[in-house]
Amino acid sequence: MNEALANDNRLAVLDHSRLQAKSGTPGAERGRISVRDVDIVFDTASGPHTAVENASLTVRPGEFICLLGPSGCGKSTLMNTIAGFVTPSSGEVRVDGVAVTEPGPDRGMVFQQHSLFPWKTVKENVAFGPLMSGVGSQEANSVARTFLSLVGLAAFENAYPNTLSGGMQQRVGIARALANYPSVLLMDEPFGALDAQTRIMMQENLLDIWREFRNTVVFVTHDIDEAVFLSDRIVVMSASPGKIIADIDVDLPRPREQSLLTSPEFMALKRQCLDLIRKETLNAFKQQNRAG
């Protein structure tokens, strides 16, 4: 009962001094990503494999972009270079002017699934980031509670992850990533394993939370609907080698709700993306045929 009440004014308890400045004050803005001429080549058993070729991309502070493309197009790889897990073979990635060399708490990550620490309770999972940043465990726990109510899971703080549904686990994952107040949130197909209803609700939830946070979001997906619904801008990638082939502005009004999914503007954008990806896929097929 109490938890349900707490959920209603859940956003009031965030530490507003650590949130992205709403607008104006350009000096205070954090989360500018610049990817410049990045090539990523992996050594495989059958020789070098180019996962990403000549990718350049700038993301403004507070922008929500989707990396959209078929599986294996290197969109996750590109995001992992921003996260600091993958070092580009050439080119560079900078966040707020600082070259990325390793993962850090300024770039929160949400993974596809099963990335919560199964031996930690939901609260301990969310408190982990603050604890690592050096605050005491009491402070970390109170931050964790704040973020759990933010995602509507305050009642489950003492549950272990394996007792939660997939959707609830992902909400904990989002709370955990945000608990560090990162300037950039990196999401690697976070809703890919969820059923359609849960997924739409999660997308709306995410937008609600992001409206408060206003941090930069890079969201990897292969789902066109998801990309159009969520983002300010869609960066379309093609497969083998992974290349950025288009950059589409999504000028749909916010806040966005489920009804948007059937509006003509949404459909037009969706068609644009479909055509692009279709053309690209056909090209790839033609190349393969010629090669074969």
Binding site: F85, E102, P105, G108, M132, S133, R176
Partner: peptide
Amino acid sequence: RAARSLGAS
């Protein structure tokens, strides 16, 4: 990877 991105040593 999750732990590293959360700032764990």
